[in-house]
Structure formats: C-alpha cells, structure tokens
Computed example of a mutant assay.
Amino acid sequence: MPRPPVTRMVEDYVTLIWKAYEWPGGRPATTDLAEQLGVTASTVSANLKKLARDGYIDYEPYGQITLTDEGRQIAVEIVRRHRIVETYLVEALGLTWDQVHVEADRLEHAVSDLVLERMNIVLGRPARDPHGDPIPDAEGHTAEFPSRPLADSDSGVDVEVVRVSDRSPELLRYLDERGIVIGTKLRVVSVSSAASSIAVDIAGESIELALDAAEAIRVEPELD
C-alpha cells in the first residue's frame, strides 16, 4: 500500500520532534508540541497517531515520541532549508534574529532546491544559523558544537554566547537590547537559585537575567 504524500502537517510535526531532541537535554512532549503549533493537546495526540500509522514516528499514547528513519530524513531536510533561509534573511536582507523564524517558516516549503543551494553558496556554506543552531549539510549530517546553559556556569567564569533558543522572539529582542547575541563575551558575576537570577558583566556593564532566560542561552568557555 503506497504511503500518503508528505503534507505540511507531517513536515511540521517531524521537524519539531527532531528539534526537541537536538536541543541538549530536550525531548518532545504532547503539551509542548501543542503550544508551538497553536492547537489542542487532543489534536496533537490524534496527529501523532496518524504519523505513527504512516511510518514517520514511533509513538504510544503517554509514551516516548521518536522519529523513524523516514521521519528523520524529512525533518533534517526541512531544518536545513529553514536555517539556510534564516541565515540568508539576516545576512543578505538585514532582518533581525527575532524576525526570521516566522519568515523562514513561510519560505522553507516554497523555495526551490536550486535557489536554496544558491543562497547557501552566497553565504559561504555556513555551519550555523543566526541563533547559533547547526545547519545540517546536504547529506543530513549535523556538526556537534559542545556548549552548556549559561544558567549552569560558575561565578567568575568568562564565557562566550554560542547559541540561543529561537522559541521566543520577545526573549531574542530582550537579549539583543542588552547586547547578548551570538559571539558576545561575558563574565558570570553570580548565580542565585533563591532569586532565580544570574548576574553577568558585559564590557563593564552588569546585567541581571532570570534563570529561565539563562537556560535559553548556551555558552562555551572563552579561550585564553
């Protein structure tokens, strides 16, 4: 029996599942998928059953959600397209990093392979997108860039911002206004679990962030 054609719904779901596992320590959950897709949890559950029936995921209600090989192949291709488009929108068209996620969502399904490859060549085949997320290569391989949450850093440590979650445009704008972008070097001044905050120093300016925000920021130690 032939498999149904790959729909936008299939692409959206397998991509979100793949990205959930890609973010260190993450895993997909029905409620989280519902929030990102703007639908009810019952709708997500019903669609997950369809995806499992059609061979894109392995799933049992209330159990772990994992991609099959075919589901992963689709997801990686969409992620690659999305992140190349995001990078092009920033580097070539001057959009800001909080604007490009929604725009890339619209374009990733429409841009041709020819145009996508031309974008990639013009950009110099970047390894990461504007948020520091790795861009899969044409064979679907994704480079690993070790990092840790800013919230897990010790006081007095100098670090560099290498990745920021693109889940919240509001957070991206907030960080940008405070000079916290990819490549920013900062010193961790103090971490307070009681106050749920972390204080950092950027070029002599002290900034306090909520620990939730710091969890969305991944860093690596500065090299001497």
Rank of each mutant, 00 (worst) to 15 (best):
N47E: 08
E11G: 03
V76Q: 00
R80E: 02
E77A: 10
H82P: 01
S197V: 06
R83Y: 01
P221L: 07
E139D: 15
A104N: 02
I182L: 07
P134R: 09
S147T: 15
G25H: 12
V79N: 00
V200N: 03
K49V: 07
W97G: 04
D152R: 11
L107E: 03
R80M: 04
S155E: 12
S190C: 06
Y174A: 01
D166I: 04
A52M: 10
D129E: 12
Y21G: 04
W97R: 10
S147V: 14
G204H: 14
W23Y: 11
T30V: 15
L209H: 02
T40E: 03
D154E: 11
A151M: 11
G156N: 14
P5S: 10
E86P: 02
V161K: 01
T31S: 13
Y56C: 13
W18I: 06
E160D: 07
V189R: 05
V6I: 09
I135T: 03
A104M: 08
V14G: 04
I84R: 00
P136T: 05
D176M: 14
R148E: 15
L95Q: 07
P5T: 11
V200F: 00
L51T: 00
P61S: 10
L186Q: 01
I121A: 15
A52D: 04
P149W: 03
R167W: 04
P149T: 06
R27P: 09
P134K: 09
A143H: 07
Q99I: 09
D113I: 08
S147A: 14
D166M: 10
Q99N: 04
T184P: 02
A104P: 00
D98M: 15
E170D: 13
L37K: 02
L186N: 00
D176Y: 04
G132S: 06
E108C: 08
F145N: 13
R106G: 14
Y88D: 03
I135S: 03
E208K: 14
D32T: 14
H109I: 12
V191D: 01
D133M: 11
K49H: 10
W23P: 11
P24E: 12
M1G: 05
V189E: 06
I65Y: 03
D158I: 13
L51H: 03
A143G: 05
R3D: 10
P24F: 02
D212P: 04
I202T: 04
